[in-house]
Write a protein that binds this DNA or RNA. Structure first.
Length: 369
RNA sequence: GGGUGGGUAGCAAAGUAGUCAAAUGCGGCAGACUGUAAAUCUGCUGGCUUCGGUCUUCGUAGGUGCAAAUCCUACCCCACCCA
Protein backbone atom coordinates (compact mmCIF):
# COMPACT_ATOMS: atom_id res chain seq x y z
CA UNK A 1 0.00 0.00 0.00
CA UNK A 2 1.20 3.48 -0.79
CA UNK A 3 0.91 6.28 1.71
CA UNK A 4 1.52 9.83 0.59
CA UNK A 5 3.42 11.67 3.29
CA UNK A 6 4.08 15.01 1.73
CA UNK A 7 3.70 16.89 -1.52
CA UNK A 8 6.19 19.48 -2.62
CA UNK A 9 4.87 22.95 -3.08
CA UNK A 10 7.46 23.72 -5.74
CA UNK A 11 6.80 20.76 -8.01
CA UNK A 12 4.78 17.57 -8.28
CA UNK A 13 7.36 15.76 -6.16
CA UNK A 14 6.07 13.48 -3.43
CA UNK A 15 7.36 11.83 -0.32
CA UNK A 16 5.73 8.60 0.64
CA UNK A 17 5.89 5.13 2.09
CA UNK A 18 5.23 1.97 0.19
CA UNK A 19 4.32 -0.98 2.38
CA UNK A 20 5.06 -4.48 1.12
CA UNK A 21 5.07 -7.95 2.58
CA UNK A 22 8.80 -7.62 3.26
CA UNK A 23 8.85 -4.15 4.69
CA UNK A 24 8.17 -0.48 4.20
CA UNK A 25 10.04 1.51 1.58
CA UNK A 26 10.57 5.25 1.59
CA UNK A 27 9.69 6.90 -1.70
CA UNK A 28 11.01 8.16 -4.00
CA UNK A 29 13.43 5.27 -4.36
CA UNK A 30 15.72 3.52 -6.80
CA UNK A 31 15.88 -0.26 -7.26
CA UNK A 32 19.13 -1.94 -8.16
CA UNK A 33 18.51 -4.60 -10.76
CA UNK A 34 19.00 -8.27 -9.95
CA UNK A 35 17.62 -9.76 -13.14
CA UNK A 36 19.11 -13.16 -12.45
CA UNK A 37 18.73 -13.04 -8.70
CA UNK A 38 21.96 -11.19 -8.07
CA UNK A 39 23.11 -7.63 -8.39
CA UNK A 40 26.26 -7.87 -10.47
CA UNK A 41 28.92 -9.00 -8.07
CA UNK A 42 27.47 -7.60 -4.86
CA UNK A 43 26.33 -9.53 -1.82
CA UNK A 44 23.01 -8.59 -0.18
CA UNK A 45 24.70 -7.08 2.88
CA UNK A 46 26.68 -4.76 0.66
CA UNK A 47 23.53 -3.73 -1.17
CA UNK A 48 21.81 -2.93 2.06
CA UNK A 49 24.76 -0.91 3.26
CA UNK A 50 24.66 1.08 0.06
CA UNK A 51 21.09 2.01 0.91
CA UNK A 52 19.09 -0.37 -1.24
CA UNK A 53 15.58 -0.79 0.14
CA UNK A 54 14.33 -3.04 -2.62
CA UNK A 55 15.70 -4.81 -5.69
CA UNK A 56 14.25 -5.80 -9.02
CA UNK A 57 14.25 -9.31 -10.46
CA UNK A 58 12.93 -10.69 -13.68
CA UNK A 59 10.19 -13.23 -14.30
CA UNK A 60 11.30 -14.24 -17.77
CA UNK A 61 14.98 -14.74 -17.01
CA UNK A 62 14.39 -16.61 -13.77
CA UNK A 63 11.78 -18.81 -15.38
CA UNK A 64 14.35 -19.86 -17.98
CA UNK A 65 17.15 -20.24 -15.50
CA UNK A 66 17.32 -21.62 -12.87
CA UNK A 67 13.63 -22.49 -13.36
CA UNK A 68 10.71 -22.48 -10.99
CA UNK A 69 11.34 -25.87 -9.41
CA UNK A 70 14.63 -24.75 -7.93
CA UNK A 71 13.12 -21.57 -6.58
CA UNK A 72 10.14 -23.44 -5.15
CA UNK A 73 12.50 -25.85 -3.49
CA UNK A 74 14.41 -22.90 -2.06
CA UNK A 75 11.19 -21.53 -0.64
CA UNK A 76 11.04 -18.52 -2.90
CA UNK A 77 13.36 -15.99 -4.38
CA UNK A 78 14.09 -14.15 -1.13
CA UNK A 79 15.59 -17.23 0.47
CA UNK A 80 17.16 -18.41 -2.76
CA UNK A 81 19.20 -15.22 -3.10
CA UNK A 82 19.38 -14.35 0.59
CA UNK A 83 17.61 -11.02 0.30
CA UNK A 84 14.94 -10.52 2.92
CA UNK A 85 13.89 -7.06 1.88
CA UNK A 86 11.29 -6.34 -0.78
CA UNK A 87 11.64 -7.60 -4.33
CA UNK A 88 9.85 -6.23 -7.33
CA UNK A 89 9.61 -8.61 -10.24
CA UNK A 90 9.30 -7.43 -13.78
CA UNK A 91 6.95 -9.48 -15.88
CA UNK A 92 8.95 -10.10 -19.02
CA UNK A 93 7.24 -7.27 -20.85
CA UNK A 94 10.54 -5.55 -21.44
CA UNK A 95 11.91 -8.69 -23.02
CA UNK A 96 9.15 -8.30 -25.60
CA UNK A 97 11.15 -5.25 -26.62
CA UNK A 98 14.74 -6.24 -25.90
CA UNK A 99 14.52 -9.81 -27.24
CA UNK A 100 12.51 -8.76 -30.24
CA UNK A 101 14.15 -11.27 -32.56
CA UNK A 102 13.27 -14.27 -30.44
CA UNK A 103 9.64 -13.68 -29.73
CA UNK A 104 6.22 -13.56 -31.32
CA UNK A 105 3.41 -11.49 -29.90
CA UNK A 106 -0.04 -12.99 -29.96
CA UNK A 107 -3.27 -11.74 -28.47
CA UNK A 108 -3.11 -14.30 -25.69
CA UNK A 109 0.53 -13.68 -24.76
CA UNK A 110 4.10 -13.77 -25.98
CA UNK A 111 5.94 -16.73 -27.40
CA UNK A 112 9.64 -16.58 -26.58
CA UNK A 113 12.28 -18.88 -27.91
CA UNK A 114 14.73 -19.80 -25.18
CA UNK A 115 18.27 -18.61 -25.79
CA UNK A 116 19.59 -21.76 -24.12
CA UNK A 117 17.84 -24.64 -25.79
CA UNK A 118 15.55 -23.04 -28.35
CA UNK A 119 12.53 -24.29 -26.43
CA UNK A 120 9.40 -22.25 -26.93
CA UNK A 121 7.92 -20.52 -23.92
CA UNK A 122 4.48 -19.07 -24.09
CA UNK A 123 4.13 -16.34 -21.51
CA UNK A 124 0.58 -15.22 -20.83
CA UNK A 125 -0.56 -12.56 -18.40
CA UNK A 126 -1.98 -15.27 -16.15
CA UNK A 127 1.22 -17.28 -16.25
CA UNK A 128 3.28 -14.19 -15.45
CA UNK A 129 1.20 -13.71 -12.30
CA UNK A 130 1.57 -17.38 -11.35
CA UNK A 131 5.32 -17.32 -11.86
CA UNK A 132 5.69 -14.16 -9.84
CA UNK A 133 3.68 -15.77 -7.07
CA UNK A 134 6.09 -18.69 -7.01
CA UNK A 135 9.02 -16.29 -6.95
CA UNK A 136 7.46 -14.70 -3.90
CA UNK A 137 7.38 -11.24 -5.40
CA UNK A 138 6.45 -8.28 -3.22
CA UNK A 139 5.53 -6.10 -6.15
CA UNK A 140 4.36 -7.87 -9.27
CA UNK A 141 4.25 -6.26 -12.67
CA UNK A 142 1.60 -7.22 -15.19
CA UNK A 143 2.73 -8.56 -18.54
CA UNK A 144 2.76 -5.73 -21.04
CA UNK A 145 3.88 -5.04 -24.55
CA UNK A 146 6.71 -2.56 -24.66
CA UNK A 147 6.62 -1.16 -28.18
CA UNK A 148 9.83 -0.07 -29.83
CA UNK A 149 10.60 3.51 -30.82
CA UNK A 150 9.71 4.74 -33.27
CA UNK A 151 6.38 2.98 -33.48
CA UNK A 152 3.60 3.94 -35.84
CA UNK A 153 0.34 5.05 -34.32
CA UNK A 154 -1.24 1.74 -35.29
CA UNK A 155 1.54 -0.33 -33.75
CA UNK A 156 1.45 1.72 -30.58
CA UNK A 157 -2.31 1.49 -30.48
CA UNK A 158 -2.30 -2.28 -30.86
CA UNK A 159 0.29 -2.53 -28.10
CA UNK A 160 -1.90 -0.45 -25.81
CA UNK A 161 -4.98 -2.53 -26.51
CA UNK A 162 -3.11 -5.74 -25.81
CA UNK A 163 -1.45 -4.31 -22.74
CA UNK A 164 -4.81 -3.20 -21.37
CA UNK A 165 -6.40 -6.58 -22.09
CA UNK A 166 -3.48 -8.32 -20.47
CA UNK A 167 -3.74 -6.02 -17.47
CA UNK A 168 -7.38 -7.05 -17.12
CA UNK A 169 -6.45 -10.74 -17.32
CA UNK A 170 -3.64 -10.23 -14.84
CA UNK A 171 -5.95 -8.47 -12.43
CA UNK A 172 -8.48 -11.28 -12.65
CA UNK A 173 -5.85 -13.98 -12.27
CA UNK A 174 -4.29 -12.15 -9.34
CA UNK A 175 -7.58 -11.73 -7.51
CA UNK A 176 -8.37 -15.39 -8.00
CA UNK A 177 -4.98 -16.70 -6.94
CA UNK A 178 -4.75 -14.53 -3.84
CA UNK A 179 -8.42 -14.64 -2.88
CA UNK A 180 -7.73 -16.45 0.37
CA UNK A 181 -4.39 -14.88 1.23
CA UNK A 182 -4.32 -12.34 3.98
CA UNK A 183 -0.89 -11.06 2.97
CA UNK A 184 -0.76 -10.33 -0.72
CA UNK A 185 1.87 -8.88 -2.95
CA UNK A 186 1.19 -5.60 -4.67
CA UNK A 187 0.39 -5.64 -8.34
CA UNK A 188 1.13 -2.77 -10.70
CA UNK A 189 -0.37 -1.98 -14.08
CA UNK A 190 1.79 -0.64 -16.90
CA UNK A 191 0.83 2.29 -19.07
CA UNK A 192 1.95 2.20 -22.70
CA UNK A 193 1.22 4.36 -25.73
CA UNK A 194 4.62 5.40 -27.08
CA UNK A 195 4.62 9.18 -27.53
CA UNK A 196 1.01 9.50 -28.61
CA UNK A 197 -0.98 11.66 -26.22
CA UNK A 198 -4.36 10.06 -26.72
CA UNK A 199 -2.97 6.54 -26.43
CA UNK A 200 -1.11 7.34 -23.23
CA UNK A 201 -4.20 8.97 -21.77
CA UNK A 202 -6.47 6.11 -22.72
CA UNK A 203 -4.00 3.57 -21.42
CA UNK A 204 -3.76 5.37 -18.10
CA UNK A 205 -7.51 5.81 -17.69
CA UNK A 206 -8.27 2.19 -18.53
CA UNK A 207 -5.68 0.90 -16.10
CA UNK A 208 -6.84 3.14 -13.29
CA UNK A 209 -10.28 1.54 -13.61
CA UNK A 210 -8.68 -1.81 -12.82
CA UNK A 211 -7.54 -0.46 -9.47
CA UNK A 212 -3.92 -1.53 -9.30
CA UNK A 213 -1.69 -0.95 -6.29
CA UNK A 214 0.54 1.23 -8.35
CA UNK A 215 0.98 2.43 -11.89
CA UNK A 216 4.05 2.06 -14.00
CA UNK A 217 4.96 4.18 -16.97
CA UNK A 218 6.44 1.76 -19.44
CA UNK A 219 7.76 2.02 -22.96
CA UNK A 220 9.99 4.99 -22.21
CA UNK A 221 13.74 5.34 -22.58
CA UNK A 222 13.66 3.22 -25.70
CA UNK A 223 15.14 5.89 -27.96
CA UNK A 224 12.47 8.57 -27.96
CA UNK A 225 13.44 12.23 -27.47
CA UNK A 226 13.61 12.95 -23.75
CA UNK A 227 11.43 16.04 -24.22
CA UNK A 228 8.65 13.77 -25.42
CA UNK A 229 9.22 11.41 -22.51
CA UNK A 230 8.55 14.18 -20.04
CA UNK A 231 5.62 15.56 -21.97
CA UNK A 232 4.03 12.13 -21.69
CA UNK A 233 4.92 11.75 -18.03
CA UNK A 234 3.21 15.02 -17.18
CA UNK A 235 0.18 14.09 -19.20
CA UNK A 236 -0.16 10.66 -17.60
CA UNK A 237 0.67 11.80 -14.09
CA UNK A 238 -2.42 13.96 -13.99
CA UNK A 239 -4.58 10.90 -14.60
CA UNK A 240 -3.16 8.83 -11.78
CA UNK A 241 -4.69 8.64 -8.31
CA UNK A 242 -2.65 10.42 -5.70
CA UNK A 243 -2.73 7.52 -3.27
CA UNK A 244 -1.00 5.07 -5.57
CA UNK A 245 2.70 4.76 -6.31
CA UNK A 246 4.02 5.78 -9.72
CA UNK A 247 6.89 3.92 -11.25
CA UNK A 248 8.90 5.11 -14.25
CA UNK A 249 10.26 1.86 -15.60
CA UNK A 250 13.84 1.69 -16.78
CA UNK A 251 14.78 5.24 -15.91
CA UNK A 252 17.23 6.74 -15.99
CA UNK A 253 20.19 9.05 -15.96
CA UNK A 254 20.62 10.98 -12.71
CA UNK A 255 19.22 14.24 -14.00
CA UNK A 256 16.28 12.37 -15.55
CA UNK A 257 15.47 10.79 -12.23
CA UNK A 258 15.48 14.15 -10.50
CA UNK A 259 13.31 15.60 -13.22
CA UNK A 260 10.92 12.67 -12.97
CA UNK A 261 10.67 12.99 -9.20
CA UNK A 262 9.65 16.58 -9.77
CA UNK A 263 7.03 15.30 -12.19
CA UNK A 264 5.56 13.10 -9.47
CA UNK A 265 7.32 9.76 -9.94
CA UNK A 266 8.03 7.63 -6.86
CA UNK A 267 9.95 4.62 -8.14
CA UNK A 268 12.85 3.98 -10.47
CA UNK A 269 15.04 1.20 -11.73
CA UNK A 270 17.76 1.27 -14.33
CA UNK A 271 20.76 -0.70 -15.55
CA UNK A 272 22.77 2.47 -15.98
CA UNK A 273 24.62 2.59 -12.66
CA UNK A 274 25.61 -1.07 -12.75
CA UNK A 275 26.27 -1.48 -16.44
CA UNK A 276 28.17 1.77 -16.70
CA UNK A 277 30.18 0.80 -13.64
CA UNK A 278 31.26 -2.39 -15.37
CA UNK A 279 32.11 -0.40 -18.46
CA UNK A 280 34.16 2.11 -16.51
CA UNK A 281 31.80 5.11 -16.58
CA UNK A 282 31.58 6.56 -13.10
CA UNK A 283 29.56 9.29 -11.45
CA UNK A 284 31.02 12.20 -9.55
CA UNK A 285 28.96 14.74 -7.62
CA UNK A 286 30.01 18.23 -8.52
CA UNK A 287 27.65 20.18 -6.34
CA UNK A 288 26.25 19.55 -2.91
CA UNK A 289 23.68 22.27 -2.96
CA UNK A 290 20.14 21.51 -4.06
CA UNK A 291 19.52 18.51 -6.27
CA UNK A 292 16.04 19.73 -6.90
CA UNK A 293 17.09 23.06 -8.30
CA UNK A 294 20.60 22.63 -9.68
CA UNK A 295 20.82 21.22 -13.16
CA UNK A 296 24.38 20.06 -13.43
CA UNK A 297 25.03 18.34 -10.17
CA UNK A 298 27.27 15.59 -11.40
CA UNK A 299 29.90 14.63 -13.90
CA UNK A 300 30.77 11.37 -15.63
CA UNK A 301 34.29 10.06 -15.86
CA UNK A 302 35.71 7.25 -17.96
CA UNK A 303 38.04 5.59 -15.51
CA UNK A 304 40.07 4.00 -18.31
CA UNK A 305 41.03 7.40 -19.73
CA UNK A 306 44.78 7.86 -19.67
CA UNK A 307 44.47 11.05 -17.65
CA UNK A 308 43.63 8.95 -14.58
CA UNK A 309 46.77 6.87 -14.89
CA UNK A 310 48.48 8.61 -11.99
CA UNK A 311 45.45 10.17 -10.32
CA UNK A 312 45.63 9.07 -6.73
CA UNK A 313 42.40 10.80 -5.73
CA UNK A 314 39.29 8.68 -5.15
CA UNK A 315 36.59 8.65 -7.83
CA UNK A 316 34.74 11.29 -5.83
CA UNK A 317 36.56 13.00 -2.97
CA UNK A 318 33.31 13.73 -1.14
CA UNK A 319 31.81 10.27 -1.62
CA UNK A 320 31.47 8.06 1.44
CA UNK A 321 31.20 4.73 -0.33
CA UNK A 322 33.62 1.91 0.43
CA UNK A 323 35.34 2.33 -2.91
CA UNK A 324 35.98 6.04 -2.53
CA UNK A 325 37.06 5.60 1.09
CA UNK A 326 39.78 3.15 0.14
CA UNK A 327 40.83 3.25 -3.50
CA UNK A 328 42.27 5.72 -5.97
CA UNK A 329 41.36 6.38 -9.58
CA UNK A 330 44.80 5.17 -10.55
CA UNK A 331 44.23 1.83 -8.83
CA UNK A 332 40.75 1.39 -10.27
CA UNK A 333 42.06 2.25 -13.72
CA UNK A 334 44.79 -0.29 -13.25
CA UNK A 335 42.23 -2.94 -12.29
CA UNK A 336 40.27 -2.13 -15.43
CA UNK A 337 43.31 -2.16 -17.70
CA UNK A 338 44.29 -5.55 -16.34
CA UNK A 339 40.75 -6.93 -16.43
CA UNK A 340 40.64 -7.62 -12.74
CA UNK A 341 36.99 -8.35 -11.81
CA UNK A 342 37.53 -6.46 -8.57
CA UNK A 343 37.58 -3.26 -10.59
CA UNK A 344 34.02 -3.84 -11.75
CA UNK A 345 32.88 -4.74 -8.29
CA UNK A 346 34.35 -1.61 -6.77
CA UNK A 347 32.93 0.68 -9.43
CA UNK A 348 29.53 -1.00 -9.15
CA UNK A 349 29.60 -0.25 -5.44
CA UNK A 350 30.38 3.37 -6.17
CA UNK A 351 27.79 3.93 -8.88
CA UNK A 352 25.03 2.23 -6.92
CA UNK A 353 25.95 4.27 -3.88
CA UNK A 354 25.77 7.36 -6.06
CA UNK A 355 22.26 6.49 -7.22
CA UNK A 356 20.95 5.35 -3.85
CA UNK A 357 22.47 8.33 -2.13
CA UNK A 358 20.98 10.59 -4.76
CA UNK A 359 17.54 9.24 -3.84
CA UNK A 360 18.25 9.65 -0.16
CA UNK A 361 19.27 13.25 -0.68
CA UNK A 362 16.18 13.90 -2.75
CA UNK A 363 14.03 12.53 0.07
CA UNK A 364 15.81 14.61 2.65
CA UNK A 365 15.49 17.70 0.58
CA UNK A 366 11.78 17.11 0.16
CA UNK A 367 11.41 16.51 3.88
CA UNK A 368 13.07 19.82 4.70
CA UNK A 369 11.18 21.77 2.12
C1' G B 1 84.15 -21.13 -39.74
C1' G B 2 79.83 -24.26 -42.20
C1' G B 3 74.47 -24.98 -42.69
C1' U B 4 69.32 -23.70 -42.25
C1' G B 5 65.44 -20.43 -41.21
C1' G B 6 64.30 -15.46 -40.52
C1' G B 7 64.33 -9.73 -40.27
C1' U B 8 56.92 -6.25 -42.07
C1' A B 9 53.80 -0.53 -38.33
C1' G B 10 54.28 -0.09 -30.37
C1' C B 11 54.37 -5.88 -30.02
C1' A B 12 53.06 -10.54 -32.36
C1' A B 13 52.01 -12.14 -37.15
C1' A B 14 49.83 -12.49 -42.52
C1' G B 15 51.18 -10.96 -47.27
C1' U B 16 55.95 -13.25 -51.52
C1' A B 17 55.41 -8.64 -58.33
C1' G B 18 50.19 -4.53 -59.64
C1' U B 19 43.43 -4.60 -56.30
C1' C B 20 49.31 -2.70 -50.23
C1' A B 21 49.74 2.62 -46.06
C1' A B 22 49.98 -3.16 -45.89
C1' A B 23 44.96 -8.69 -43.26
C1' U B 24 44.36 -10.29 -38.22
C1' G B 25 45.25 -10.37 -32.98
C1' C B 26 47.19 -7.82 -28.81
C1' G B 27 48.48 -3.16 -26.99
C1' G B 28 47.11 2.21 -27.18
C1' C B 29 43.33 6.39 -27.70
C1' A B 30 38.33 7.99 -27.52
C1' G B 31 33.11 7.12 -27.32
C1' A B 32 28.28 4.58 -26.45
C1' C B 33 25.26 2.11 -22.99
C1' U B 34 18.20 3.85 -19.81
C1' G B 35 11.85 -2.21 -16.91
C1' U B 36 20.34 -6.11 -18.43
C1' A B 37 21.06 -12.24 -24.07
C1' A B 38 25.98 -6.32 -22.42
C1' A B 39 33.12 -7.93 -17.75
C1' U B 40 29.61 -5.63 -24.02
C1' C B 41 29.63 -2.78 -28.42
C1' U B 42 31.53 1.22 -31.90
C1' G B 43 35.25 4.32 -34.05
C1' C B 44 40.40 5.74 -34.55
C1' U B 45 45.52 3.91 -34.20
C1' G B 46 52.65 6.31 -40.30
C1' G B 47 52.95 12.05 -41.61
C1' C B 48 50.37 16.09 -43.81
C1' U B 49 45.51 17.25 -45.66
C1' U B 50 41.00 22.39 -48.28
C1' C B 51 39.31 14.72 -46.60
C1' G B 52 39.75 14.67 -53.03
C1' G B 53 44.23 13.24 -52.10
C1' U B 54 49.30 13.38 -51.22
C1' C B 55 54.28 12.26 -49.10
C1' U B 56 57.53 8.70 -46.50
C1' U B 57 57.42 3.37 -45.06
C1' C B 58 58.11 -3.63 -44.98
C1' G B 59 66.78 -4.81 -41.88
C1' U B 60 70.65 -1.58 -45.07
C1' A B 61 72.61 -0.27 -49.90
C1' G B 62 72.31 -1.06 -54.90
C1' G B 63 69.83 -3.44 -59.25
C1' U B 64 65.87 -5.62 -62.76
C1' G B 65 61.20 -4.14 -64.33
C1' C B 66 55.86 0.09 -66.83
C1' A B 67 55.22 -1.47 -61.58
C1' A B 68 58.87 -4.28 -55.76
C1' A B 69 57.17 -5.65 -48.79
C1' U B 70 57.20 -9.32 -52.78
C1' C B 71 62.52 -10.86 -57.92
C1' C B 72 68.31 -10.32 -58.16
C1' U B 73 73.22 -8.86 -55.78
C1' A B 74 76.09 -7.40 -51.65
C1' C B 75 76.22 -6.25 -46.74
C1' C B 76 74.36 -6.00 -41.50
C1' C B 77 71.65 -8.30 -37.67
C1' C B 78 68.72 -12.47 -35.13
C1' A B 79 67.48 -17.75 -34.05
C1' C B 80 68.64 -22.77 -34.24
C1' C B 81 71.91 -26.78 -35.77
C1' C B 82 76.97 -28.59 -37.01
C1' A B 83 82.26 -27.72 -36.09
Amino acid sequence: MFKLIKKSNQSQARLGKLTTAHGVIDTPFFMPIATRAAVKGLIPEELENLGAQIILSNTYHLFLRPGLEIIKKSDGLHKFMHWEKPILTDSGGYQVFSLEKNRKIKDQGVEFQSEFDGKKIFLTPEKAVEIQKILGSDIMMVLDECAPYPASYDEASRAVIRTTNWAQSSRTAFDKIFKKNRVKPLIFGIIQGSIFKDLRLKSAKDLVKLNFDGYALGGFMVGEPIKDTFKMIKLVEAELPENKARYLMGAGKPEQIVQAVKAGIDMFDCVIPTRNARHGLLYVMTNNKSLMTEKNFYQEIHITNSKYKDDIKPIDSHCECYTCQNFSRAYLRHLFMTNEPLGQRLTTIHNLYFYLNLMKNIREELKKE
